[in-house]
Design a protein around this nucleic acid. Structure first.
Lengths: 291, 291
DNA sequence: TCGATGTTTTTCATGAGTGAAAAACATATG
DNA sequence: CATATGTTTTTCACTCATGAAAAACATCGA
């Protein structure tokens, strides 16, 4: 039972994520050949088949997924070390995980979060999947559901409301809808068009962000958070707030990281930014061109 | 900021534990030269001095200790993976951490814990330091203080009493004591001779286990747990139970590991073994030659 | 003071692990 | 059905990390 090279674990994770040798190769800088050999070594060591190899890439077996789960913890520990290292170098990175529209707001107001004079950088990872801070993939997250994990600290930001929007003064075809494709529609507001007006959907996209562009271009009506729709001078509401979609919103962070200066300041600034938009979030009629 | 080879972290841990390159070399199977080079690489990567190098070995700096702390988490995760691997191979190892006398009892009754027919092995790590299950260095521990960590499951075993013992029918010199050297005396019962009879100590040893041998040989009186002294046919009590040393005792295990079959059975057997000695632990007069 | 011993560090030849490129192989695409 | 594209896998030089041995260096004991 000789010990295996820990770096093979790291390799495994990039293969699992990259979906194959080539993906992992360019992620790590190693050659596909080397990585392939290492994965063979790992499989031999564990005595289990970890991958289903095919011409389209490497897919995880059940055992592979199990290993993946376990190694996430190891990654979390490694990340902790990495961030400790960066601390001394002065240039730290604060990783924020947010949904499409939270990220949008942050991006629009980036100077309010991070300026030239700050010594830290921002990494903004955008996705609809619920932000998992468990393995420290991110430092700060924006959530639409109440955080229950004990290791998380959270700040309630307020409520966010939704409504349908269309191009201002749109000509006709008011019953045309645009939506996110059904299998990508994870959040309630994304599923709404499918539930309520599926026959009228004239275009689907794979990323929610494109809904805004489509609506603006007059392609049809889209369900958007009010703070997005109301802020856009080219859009107008097509109906009242959609009840049942309204939900609360939290900023969450890992409890252990509260001491990190850079994270604290980013959280504080994010809180200020979001709190200043609290009326917009809630759908209260805004003054135009607010940003 | 390129990523560092995870295996260097593992290397670092063995150096930190081994106290230098040679120690780590024979622990890992690598050569001192290689390990030395890797540690240089690590220091360069972190940008911090991790070691104080001298002709007597490598000592950790403050930063080194900090890194060590952090990497323990990584080790814990790796251990988890390792044990998962072993699961499939059938030959698992259950790691028990116990004090000198707990270990002694287990060793004396080893067949009650693990027989030929069991597919698992036992690793018994002996030490006075409080068993840390936090980083999964062990699966099961024996403790003399109430477990408060939420991630631990525990079973109360009963109380353990202490008394002074001497060779049976010892000739004279009844006021000679043997003890553990003062700076090794961590537990209360080990400190007792220093506190109460320091002038009379004629011999000190570095390991508590040797107290039994010394007392048996007639070197002097020793403070021992009653279940040890009373079980030894060559010893007799030199006085009543020493009040104030009596304490309770727990078997603890990691909560997440309760599902592991091998760990369950070992815990169950240990519980049975210890519970069957509960009167002896408590110092109630035993029948001779009990084991 | 002077070896003896145990360190780390350096030197240098060697081979194990590596990458570039080719081969083998599926799958998508027209 | 042939072609194009993107995989994995194999092949084969070659480099770079490695280990044995020597050197350099402290510390301990006599």
């Amino acid at each position: 039972m000789k010990n295996i090279d820990w770096d093979i674990y790291r390799c495994f994770m990039t293969v699992a994520r990259g979906g194959g040798l080539t993906g992992a190769a360019q992620a790590t800088g190693l050659s596909p050949a080397t990585i392939g050999r290492r994965m063979l070594e790992l499989e031999e060591h564990t005595g289990r088949a970890l991958f289903i190899r095919s011409q389209t890439g490497y897919a995880l077996t059940a055992d592979g997924r199990l290993l993946f789960e376990q190694l996430q913890e190891m990654e979390a520990a490694a990340r902790k070390v990495e961030s400790w290292q960066q601390e001394s170098e002065g240039n730290t990175i604060v990783r924020i995980a947010a949904g499409t529209w939270g990220s949008w707001l942050i991006a629009e107001n980036f100077p309010a979060i991070c300026t030239e004079r700050d010594s830290f950088g921002i990494s903004l990872s955008i996705g609809e999947a619920r932000a998992s801070l468990a393995y420290r993939e991110s430092d700060i997250g924006i959530r639409a559901f109440e955080p229950e994990e004990t290791y998380l600290a959270s700040r309630l930001i307020g409520e966010v409301a939704y409504a349908a929007y269309r191009q201002k003064n749109a000509a006709g075809g008011t019953e045309r809808w645009v939506a996110v494709s059904e299998d990508e529609a994870r959040s309630a507001y994304l599923r709404w068009p499918h539930d309520k007006a599926s026959a009228r959907i004239v275009a689907t996209v794979t990323r929610p962000r494109s809904l805004l562009d489509l609506a603006r271009a007059g392609a049809g009506k889209a369900v958007l958070p009010c703070f997005v729709g109301d802020l856009d001078p080219q859009l107008e509401r097509a109906g009242e707030e959609i009840d049942g979609l309204r939900h609360r919103q939290w900023i969450v962070m890992n409890n252990e990281d509260r001491h990190r200066r850079d994270i604290r300041t980013v959280v504080d600034r994010m809180t200020r930014l979001f709190r200043s938009h609290v009326d917009l979030f809630a759908g209260k009629r805004p003054r135009r061109n607010a940003i």
